[in-house]
Design a protein around this nucleic acid. Structure first.
Length: 795
DNA sequence: GCGAGCAGCGTACCT
DNA sequence: ACAGGTACGCTGCTCGCG
C-alpha cells in the first residue's frame, strides 16, 4: 500500500447504519474527505459490580434504542490520584450525555466532549498537521506519522454594499448593490454599468448572488474571509436570496451556511470551506491586549494594523452615490473594491497567527477564530491531560461558578508613586512573571498539599504547599510552551524577515506568548475545568512577594524606587550609573528560582508622574509618561490614551507632554494651552475634534442611571439613528441644555459646541495635573484667574 | 433654595 | 465568559447653611 499525505483541516461525524462514521476534512491538492470508524465513550466512577446496571441503561436516539456496548474497568488519574473507573462505550455520540443522565447517582466524566475533538485527542492529531497515512478506498486505514509541513490555502475575501435610503439597510426592502471579492484577482459584481477594470456586470441582484457563489466554487475557495460577515454580510445575502428565490450556494454541497452561537457571538459556518470572520479575531486580539485598535470598524482596524490609509465614504450616503451615478458611483465602486482588498490584507496579517494557534492548541481553525482565551487554554490542557493518562475534569455547574465568582482572589501589588518630573530612570520587569512563577513552583490544582513531600515542598506566602516530586499538568504544559518559544526566538534571528518561514515562526512564537499569558487567568477563572483558588492565589501572592522583595533589595542597594506595577519596578538612577543598575539586576537574578528572570526594559532620560485627582496630592497609579533614549515617548493611563476623551484634550495633553519631556519648556507648555483655549472660545474647533467616544455595554433600555452617552443615544434614536448594545457612540457637548447629559448630542446631529465645557472639563483637567509638576501650585492654577473658570489663569 | 461632599454606576485603562 | 487593580466623570442624593 502506498503512503499518502494530506493536511488535516477538521473532524466531524455522521451516523451510518447506526454506527458512528468519523469524517476527516483533509487538504491535498484540494479539500477532500476521509472516513474512519470510532466509538464514543465516557467514564463512570463506580465499582465493576455495577456493570450490569450500567449495561441496562438505554436512551432513545435518532429513533433507535441506544445502550452501552461495553463497560470495562480502567485505571486513570482522577484529581491527581490513581483510580479505577468504568469506561462506558456506546455507538452514537449524541447518546453519551443522555446515557450519563440516566445514571445520575454516579459521578461521571468526559461525557460532554464534542466528538470531533474526542477523536483528535485520542488519535493525537492536530489541525494543519500533515498526516502520512494509508487508505482503503475512502477509509483511513492507518496513520503512520504526522509532520509539520508548509501548506497554503486558497483564500478570498468579500464584502457587500447595500442600498440604504433609511440609514440602516432593511434586508426585506433594500437590495444588495455590490459584492466585492478579492483573492489576488479582484472584482466588484454589480448591476450598474461602471467603467472600471474590476467591474463584473450582472443583469440583476439575483444574478449577482449567483455569480458570487459561482466564483467560490470555480476558484475552489478554501478560506473565505469577511469582516463582520457572520453578523451582517452573510445573513443579509441569505435574506435577499430568500426574497429573490435564488439559492445561496456557498458550500461545497450547495448549502448556504449555518449560524452557530459560540459564547455571546454568532458565527456562520459554510460546509466544506472555512468561513473566517476577521472581526471576531480582531476583537479577541484587542481584548487580550495583543493588538491595540481604538475602534473595531474595518477602516480603523485596517489603518491601525497595517499603517496604511483606507479611504472611506459616508456610510449614510451610499444610496445617494448609487442613485446619482457618474463620479459618485465610481467612487462607491472603488470603495467597495477596497473593502474586500483591505479584508484580504487584514487576513494576511492575522491568519498566520490563527493557523499557528489552531495547530498549537489543537482546535480547528473555525473554532480557534471564534474562541475565547479560556477555550484555547482548555483545549490544549484537555489533549495533554488525556495523554498523561488523566481524566479531564468536568466544567463547574452554574452555582459553583457563581460561588467562585463571588469570592475573588487578591491580585497584584502596585506601588504608590511620588508625583513629579524625574531624570534618569531604569525600568526593570520580570519576564513572563506569572507563567514563570507557575513553572518554578510547580503550581497546579493537583500538586497542592500533596502527601509525598510534606517536609520539602514549595510553600507559597499564603502557606499553600506544592509538590516538588511530581510535575503538575499546568506547569508541564507551560514549561513546554516557554521552552518552545525560547527555541523559536533563536531560530528567528537566523531568518530573513520577509521570508514565509519567518512569518510562520513569528506567528508561532506570538501564539505561544498569548497562550502562556493566559494560564494564570484560566486557573482563577470561575468556569475553568482546572480552577483552583489555592493555586491561583498562590501565583499572585508569590508575584507580590517577588516584586516587593526586589524593591526592598534595591532600596538596600541605595536606589530610590519610584514606582512598580505587578511585575515592573521603576528605579531612579540618581548618582548611580547604568552599570550599577545592571549589576543590581544580576544580583537579583542569581537569587531567583527556576525560570524566573528580571529583565531591563529600558533606560529613560526623563519621566512624569502626576497626582491623583482629589485627595491631598497623592500620586496616581497606572498613569505616567516616559521619554526613551531614542526620543520616543511612552505613555500609560493618561487621558490621551483613552478613547473617551475628546481629540482636542488628548492632542493638547500630548503637546504639553512633548514640550516638557523633549524640551523641558514650561513656557511652551503654557502657550500651547492658552492657544487651544483661545481657539475653543472663538468657536473655531471642528466638531470631530470635540467628539467623545464611549461604548454602550448594555442595551440602552437597561441602564440604571442617565449618562451623557445614553442621553445622546436616546436623542439619536428619535432621529432614526440606532445604537444597540456594544456600539460605540460619539457625542458632542452642545450649548443647549442644563446638565451635561442634556447637552450631549451625537456627532451626526450636533450643530454647535459649548466652549466652556471643553475648556473646564476636557482641556484643562488633562493638562493641569502635568503643569502642576512644573511648579505651578494648586492655588496658582485655581484662583489667579477670573470667575469664568480655570481658563482665566491662562489669559 | 443652594452648593459641597459623597456614593454608586459606568467606562476604559494597566499589568 | 482568562485575572485583579486603578482612575475618574457624571448623576443624584444628603446635609448644613442661610
Amino acid at each position: 500500500m502506498p503512503l499518502k499525505r494530506a493536511v488535516l483541516i477538521d473532524v466531524d461525524y455522521t451516523i451510518k447504519d447506526g454506527k458512528t462514521l468519523v469524517r476527516l476534512l483533509m487538504k491535498g491538492k484540494r479539500f477532500f474527505r476521509l472516513y474512519d470508524f470510532y466509538d464514543p465513550y465516557f467514564y463512570i466512577d463506580a465499582p465493576i459490580s455495577k456493570k450490569d446496571e450500567i449495561m441496562k441503561a438505554s436512551v432513545d436516539e435518532r429513533g433507535q434504542k441506544v445502550s452501552p456496548t461495553s463497560v470495562e474497568e480502567v485505571t486513570r488519574t482522577l484529581f491527581g490520584k490513581e483510580k479505577k473507573l468504568l469506561k462506558v462505550t456506546c455507538l452514537i455520540p449524541s447518546a453519551v450525555p443522555k446515557l450519563r443522565d440516566k445514571l445520575p447517582h454516579f459521578p461521571a466524566y468526559e461525557y460532554r466532549i464534542l466528538f470531533g475533538r474526542r477523536y483528535m485527542i485520542d488519535k493525537n492529531i492536530a489541525p494543519f498537521s500533515t498526516l502520512i497515512y494509508e487508505r482503503e478506498g475512502k477509509f483511513l486505514k492507518k496513520i503512520h506519522r504526522t509532520a509539520d509541513l508548509p501548506f497554503s490555502l486558497r483564500t478570498a475575501a468579500f464584502d457587500i454594499e447595500t442600498y440604504n435610503p433609511r440609514g440602516a439597510p432593511r434586508p426585506k426592502l433594500d437590495p444588495t448593490i455590490m459584492i466585492s471579492y478579492a483573492n489576488g484577482k479582484q472584482q466588484v459584481i454589480t448591476t450598474k454599468k461602471i467603467d472600471k477594470p474590476f467591474i463584473e456586470h450582472a443583469k440583476d441582484e439575483k444574478e449577482m448572488i449567483t455569480q458570487f457563489c459561482k466564483l467560490l466554487s470555480e476558484q475552489d475557495i478554501e478560506v473565505l474571509l469577511g469582516y463582520n460577515s457572520a453578523v451582517f454580510d452573510l445573513p443579509y445575502l441569505a435574506a435577499r436570496a430568500d426574497i429573490l428565490k435564488v439559492p445561496l450556494s456557498l458550500g461545497r454541497d450547495g448549502s448556504s451556511f449555518r449560524i452557530r452561537k459560540m459564547g455571546i457571538r454568532e458565527t456562520a459556518e459554510i460546509t466544506g470551506r472555512l468561513h473566517i470572520d476577521l472581526y471576531s479575531i480582531i476583537r479577541f486580539l484587542g481584548f487580550i491586549g495583543a493588538l491595540k485598535v481604538s475602534k473595531f470598524t474595518l477602516e480603523n482596524a485596517y489603518s491601525e494594523i497595517t499603517g496604511k490609509k483606507k479611504y472611506m465614504v459616508d456610510r449614510l450616503a451610499i444610496h445617494e452615490m448609487w442613485d446619482k451615478g457618474g463620479e459618485k458611483l465610481d467612487t462607491l465602486a472603488d470603495y467597495s473594491m477596497m473593502d474586500a482588498k483591505a479584508t484580504l490584507e487584514l487576513g494576511s496579517v492575522v491568519m498566520p497567527l490563527e493557523i499557528e494557534m489552531s495547530k498549537l492548541v489543537r482546535l480547528p481553525l473555525f473554532d480557534t477564530a471564534n474562541a475565547t482565551a479560556g477555550q484555547l487554554v482548555e483545549s490544549l490542557l484537555m489533549h495533554r491531560s488525556y495523554h498523561a493518562g488523566a481524566i479531564i475534569p468536568n466544567k463547574p455547574g452554574s452555582e459553583e461558578a457563581a460561588e467562585r465568582e463571588k469570592n475573588p482572589i487578591q491580585g497584584a501589588f502596585v506601588k504608590l508613586p511620588q508625583p513629579g518630573i524625574y531624570d534618569n530612570l531604569a525600568v526593570f520587569d520580570f519576564r513572563g512573571l506569572y507563567p514563570s512563577i507557575i513553572t518554578s513552583h510547580n503550581i497546579d490544582p493537583y500538586t497542592l498539599n500533596c502527601d509525598c513531600c510534606k517536609q520539602d515542598s514549595y510553600v507559597s506566602p499564603l502557606g499553600h504547599r506544592f509538590c516538588k516530586k511530581k510535575k503538575g499538568l499546568i506547569p508541564a504544559v507551560l514549561a513546554d510552551i516557554i521552552s518552545q518559544r525560547a527555541k523559536l526566538k533563536g531560530e528567528l534571528k537566523a531568518l530573513e524577515k520577509d521570508s514565509s518561514e519567518y512569518t510562520r515562526l513569528f506567528a508561532r512564537q506570538q501564539s505561544l506568548k498569548i497562550l502562556a499569558n493566559s494560564y494564570y487567568g484560566y486557573l482563577a477563572y470561575a468556569r475553568s475545568r482546572w480552577y483552583s483558588r489555592e493555586a491561583g492565589e498562590s501565583v499572585t501572592a508569590w508575584g507580590r512577594h517577588y516584586i516587593q522583595e526586589t524593591i526592598k533589595k534595591a532600596e538596600t542597594a541605595g536606589f530610590e524606587i519610584l514606582y512598580g506595577d505587578t511585575d515592573s519596578i521603576f528605579i531612579l538612577l540618581g548618582q548611580h550609573s547604568k552599570d550599577d543598575a545592571l549589576s543590581f539586576m544580576k544580583k537579583i537574578n542569581d537569587a531567583l528560582p527556576g525560570d524566573m528572570e528580571l529583565e531591563l526594559e529600558a533606560f529613560y532620560p526623563r519621566g512624569v508622574f502626576v497626582t491623583k485627582k482629589g485627595l491631598g496630592g497623592k500620586g496616581a497609579k497606572k498613569k505616567y509618561a516616559l521619554i526613551g533614549e531614542d526620543g520616543k515617548i511612552k505613555i500609560r493611563g493618561f487621558e490621551l490614551v483613552r478613547r473617551d476623551w475628546s481629540r482636542i484634550a488628548k492632542d493638547t495633553q500630548m503637546r504639553v507632554l512633548e514640550a516638557i519631556l523633549k524640551e523641558g519648556s514650561k513656557e511652551k507648555a503654557v502657550k500651547i494651552v492658552r492657544d487651544e483655549i483661545e481657539r475653543l472660545r472663538e468657536g473655531k474647533v471642528p466638531l470631530e475634534d470635540l467628539t467623545i467616544y464611549t461604548q454602550l455595554n448594555k442595551s440602552p433600555g437597561s441602564y440604571e442611571i442617565k449618562s451623557p452617552e445614553l442621553s445622546a443615544a436616546q436623542k439619536a434614536a428619535k432621529a432614526g439613528i440606532k445604537f444597540d448594545r456594544g456600539s460605540l457612540i460619539g457625542y458632542v457637548i452642545t450649548k443647549s441644555g442644563s446638565t451635561i447629559s442634556d447637552k450631549a448630542v451625537v456627532l451626526e446631529l450636533a450643530q454647535d459646541y459649548d466652549p466652556n465645557y471643553y475648556i473646564d472639563h476636557q482641556v484643562l483637567p488633562s493638562v493641569l495635573k502635568i503643569l502642576k509638576e512644573l511648579g505651578f501650585s494648586e492655588d496658582d492654577l485655581k484662583f489667579k484667574g477670573t470667575q469664568k473658570g480655570l481658563g482665566g489663569f491662562f489669559e
